[in-house]
């Protein structure tokens, strides 16, 4: 068990490191030297060189990377050259918004997909669920968002069409979060429901379930006591893989509902060609993806003892 956890931790750490090298290399290799962008193409070379020296882009790349990476470990993501403000505080404020969106979206998706998927494997609503699944794959999350805001904000006038209220005011927070989270949750839930149904169908054909049924357990009893634990690992893995999709979805949903999250900040940073800010945010988001997948891995270990054996 300890060995399995250690191995996964090591792999995660190496992957995060590799990702940071890739993000840094990509952002450094791209054209658009920050000093030239700030001062313009026709600036005099001496002042460009001076600015380069001031922001440190005249140093060797390896030194710049080491500086950026060690800073990040201490929570210092550097200072944006464009806005002259440190990067981390700007991100921290907005991460709360994006995090609430992602968490509530995922929670809704699971709450929707698990019961529906189980029911669909039992009753004759299979075709209905596969229609829901196809719809979820065909309707991009921002289209779902626009349609939901049409129904609930324009027609029914029960929920706001955009904006955000901090967690301190729970009632308003729920009202503002409902539609964005629902757009994410519906689309993700539609993807998940297919996996849940398929997994339950497969598990319930196993021999140990046949034995359980033969000893007098009901279908639901067999599912609850023997099936779920076996069906949950592949579904958890899919949830981990889908987290990337969910995160991109959140960035877009923020644009639909004008939520002041990380995505909106990223877009503004791209407009302002603020490469360091983009670099920092991208790094955080990718690290988040990797850490979530790592946690999902650990969760699978906790659920399924067979995975703990060294490979």
């Amino acid at each position: 068990m300890v060995w399995a956890v250690l191995r996964r931790t090591l792999v995660m750490a190496v992957t995060v490191f590799a990702a940071s090298v890739v993000v840094f290399a990509a952002c450094s290799a791209l054209p658009g030297d920050t000093a030239t962008v700030l001062l313009g193409e026709r600036a005099d070379p001496a002042s460009v060189a001076a600015l380069r020296h001031e922001i440190g882009t005249d140093r060797p790349l390896a030194v710049q990377y080491a500086d950026w990476a060690t800073g990040m470990l201490g929570g210092d993501f550097g200072t944006s050259v464009v806005t002259r403000r440190p990067v981390w505080p700007q991100i921290a404020d907005r991460l709360q918004v994006t995090a609430s969106l992602v968490v509530t979206g995922m929670a809704l998706a699971v709450l929707l997909a698990v019961p529906l998927g189980v029911l669909a494997s039992r009753r004759r609503i299979g075709p209905l669920v596969s229609v829901f699944g196809q719809l979820g794959m065909a309707v991009p999350v921002f289209v779902a968002g626009i349609l939901l805001s049409y129904v609930f904000a324009v027609r029914l006038r029960v929920l706001p069409a955009g904006g955000y209220a901090p967690l301190g005011d729970p009632y308003q927070w729920v009202r503002h979060m409902a539609l964005p989270a629902l757009s994410l949750g519906l689309v993700q839930g539609a993807v998940l429901v297919r996996y849940v149904r398929g997994e339950v169908l497969e598990v319930m054909e196993k021999e140990y379930i046949r034995t359980a049924l033969a000893t007098g357990r009901t279908w639901w009893g067999a599912l609850w006591h023997h099936g779920l634990r076996n069906a949950v690992v592949p579904v958890l893995t899919v949830i981990g893989v889908q987290f990337v999709v969910l995160l991109s979805g959140a960035v877009i949903v923020e644009a639909v509902f004008t939520l002041p999250g990380v995505g909106q900040m990223l877009l503004r940073a791209v407009e302002g060609r603020d490469l360091l800010l983009v670099q920092g945010v991208v790094m955080i988001l990718i690290a988040l993806v990797l850490v979530i997948n790592y946690l999902v891995d650990l969760l699978c270990l906790a659920v399924d003892p067979r995975l703990r054996r060294p490979a």
Partner: peptide, 22 residues
């Protein structure tokens, strides 16, 4: 490919747009 799968297309597009313009 494991590493690449952690990079969403959207983030890649954002980085490229920040460097080259959208």
């Amino acid at each position: 490919t494991d590493l690449m799968l952690a990079f969403p297309a959207l983030l890649l597009a954002l980085v490229l747009a920040a460097a080259f313009g959208a």
